[in-house]
């Protein structure tokens, strides 16, 4: 199978270039990550992140034939050849397919991704009704692979000011949590022309999310919450 993979070694290369690989795959190679591991066995200078190999850790997010996805859950069958593999767009490349995710995580941390509740902790746990818990479905499943955020042009142009779809999905995850008491502060923190409102609902994030989540819907929900608070 033919692959064309973006290569970049900051010590040697001025800019990234594409390197072709023609690889004989084994019948057991079902997913793109299997093929990449096989390529790495041939050329151990190829660098990529991977860990769980089952779509849970989010390490092997990359741009595959123009779309962001996780290599470990992308079936080889059906991929157009040569399979063009590039690092996630919009983030600095450290080497080959490895990008520097610091900016992504800085934005994620900026929304305070933890429960804020000043009541004394109860003896057992903070209980929720089934309906309250159900509101978190479609939000808590995010694995922070950055497929959505790096597919978002608003994040490409303003990565220091726009939180990005992944961070905003998590912001809504805590806004929607019945146990969280910082709703007002969280909404205030997102209220400026950039942090939330750079989202123009183009829905690249929904298209890119390998977990089938909908950050655009979460972002719209935050805007409605903000509106209800203001009006």
């Amino acid at each position: 199978m033919l692959f064309s993979i973006s290569r970049y070694d900051p010590d040697k290369d001025k800019k990234p270039y594409m390197q072709d690989y023609d690889v004989e795959l084994a019948p057991t190679d079902k997913m793109l990550l299997d093929a990449l591991i096989r390529i790495k066995a041939i050329d151990d200078s190829l660098s990529l992140r991977r860990s769980c190999r089952e779509g849970v850790c989010g390490s092997d997010a990359m741009n595959i034939n123009g779309r962001n996805n996780l290599a470990c859950i992308t079936p080889l069958a059906g991929l157009r050849e040569p399979v063009e593999i590039r690092p996630l767009p919009g983030l600095p490349i450290i080497r080959d397919l490895i990008v520097d995710m610091s900016q992504f995580f800085k934005q994620y941390h900026s929304i305070k991704p933890y429960l804020i509740n000043n009541d004394p902790p109860p003896e057992t746990e903070r209980l929720q009704s089934q309906e309250e818990r159900a509101r978190l479905d479609g939000l808590y499943e995010c694995i922070l692979c950055a497929c959505c955020t790096t597919a978002c042009p608003s994040f490409w142009w303003n990565p220091d000011k726009f939180v990005g779809p992944a961070g905003l999905l998590q912001a809504y995850r805590f806004l929607a949590d019945s146990r969280d008491q910082a709703t007002s502060e969280r909404l205030d923190d997102l209220e400026d022309p950039y942090r939330l409102f750079r989202c123009h609902s183009i829905m690249n994030c929904v298209d890119a999310c390998p977990k089938g989540l909908n950050p655009t819907a979460a972002i719209e929900s935050i805007k409605i919450m903000m509106l209800n608070k203001t009006v």
Binding site: D192, R195, T230
Partner: peptide
């Protein structure tokens, strides 16, 4: 880059 929140005109987003 550090994360920036633009305080000036904070309400004109909404």
């Amino acid at each position: 880059k550090p994360v920036n929140r633009i305080i000036t005109g904070a309400h004109y987003g909404l």
